[in-house]
């Protein structure tokens, strides 16, 4: 069996006759930032090579999904990224709708944009505040958790759950936005800019933070593409690509928003790209909410639609249609 440090894959030249030492960085506990171990090959204090272990927490979603009907797979997508479950839920619903050839109306699209952008905000809030923690500033993290909590309250109002939301159904939503939910979103959009400004004041031009993030983990655009980077990390490397603009789904083309681009692809750029995206997301949520069209909140695809109350006791077909999938 090949050991993790076998010379074969470290690809070191033997000419310099140096003796390298091995240092284990990690493994970190799964409850922190995901399990991760770096097996470093060191030449003195210089890292010559590193081999990563990311495994042992595979949850076999693909395998479980083989046996399940479409609507039961939504709960699995919650767990793909628990900081922004609704994004994954809706991504799955969009995929199933594409497969079934279902077209959703504008109201559903706009409602989805509101939910997706809220999820993006909560995800970016965590990501950016945790960068602060990792570089030595705990304050921003604790401060922003209050805003994240408000987003979770909105989820709770929309679907009853907070973290693993299982939000929406194939073809739209299982219920309309309640007046309380809309009020909560509006309140948050009013308060968030103030908090974000404060957070930016805390970190963006902070000498210590800048010293610890600028030119750290930098990657060039070519390399980022070659390694298959996507999302804010790719944009931070300077590639002007946002799937919401290039292939607008869920009526993103109705909205006007800008796509922030980084330059050096380092941690600081990634931080700034995410920070700017937060502002764009606030704009998107506000716009979508202001222009929310009238209409149904569900496309009523029979197989994925709970029958209305009055049909439940009087008709057979609405009750068995979901058995098709």
């Amino acid at each position: 069996m090949k050991t993790i440090n076998s010379e074969h894959h470290l690809d070191l030249t033997k000419e310099d006759e140096k003796v390298y030492s091995t240092l284990n960085l990690g493994p970190t506990h799964p409850a922190t930032h995901g399990i991760f171990q770096n097996v470093l090959t060191m030449n003195g204090e210089t890292i010559v090579s590193a081999e990563q272990t990311i495994g042992y927490i595979h949850r076999a979603f693909e395998k479980i999904a083989e046996r399940r009907p479409y609507y039961q797979i939504t709960t699995l997508t919650d767990r793909l990224n628990y900081c922004s479950s609704p994004l994954n839920n809706i991504g799955w619903h969009l995929a199933v709708e594409k497969l079934l050839g279902v077209e959703t109306n504008k109201r559903i699209d706009y409602m989805r944009i509101i939910v997706m952008e809220l999820a993006r905000i909560s995800d970016h809030l965590i990501c950016n505040s945790v960068i602060g923690v990792d570089s030595g500033a705990l304050t921003g993290f604790v401060y922003l958790f209050e805003e994240r909590e408000k987003i979770y309250e909105i989820y709770e109002e929309l679907c009853g759950a907070r973290l693993t939301t299982n939000l929406g159904v194939v073809g739209g939503f299982d219920r309309d936005f309640s007046p309380i939910a809309i009020q909560k979103i509006r309140d948050l959009m009013k308060e968030l800019p103030k908090v974000l400004h404060e957070f930016e004041n805390l970190l963006m031009r902070n000498r210590i933070f800048m010293d610890r993030t600028i030119n750290v983990g930098a990657i060039s655009a070519d390399r980022a593409l070659n390694y298959g980077f996507s999302g804010p990390c790719l944009r931070a490397a300077g590639v002007d690509y946002d799937v919401r603009v290039q292939e607008p789904y869920s009526s993103y083309n109705d909205f006007d928003f800008s796509v922030p681009i980084g330059q050096n692809g380092d941690t600081y750029d990634r931080f700034c790209v995410r920070q700017t995206e937060l502002w764009e997301s606030i704009k998107l949520v506000t716009n979508a909410l202001d222009n929310l069209p009238e209409g149904k909140f569900n496309t009523e695809v029979p197989a994925f639609f709970m029958p209305p109350k009055e049909d439940v006791y009087s008709k057979m077909e609405p009750l068995i249609s979901h058995l098709k999938w």
Partner: peptide, 11 residues
Amino acid sequence: HPNLIRILNVE
């Protein structure tokens, strides 16, 4: 492949 070993499951 330079290092074709299991990545998520045990070796």
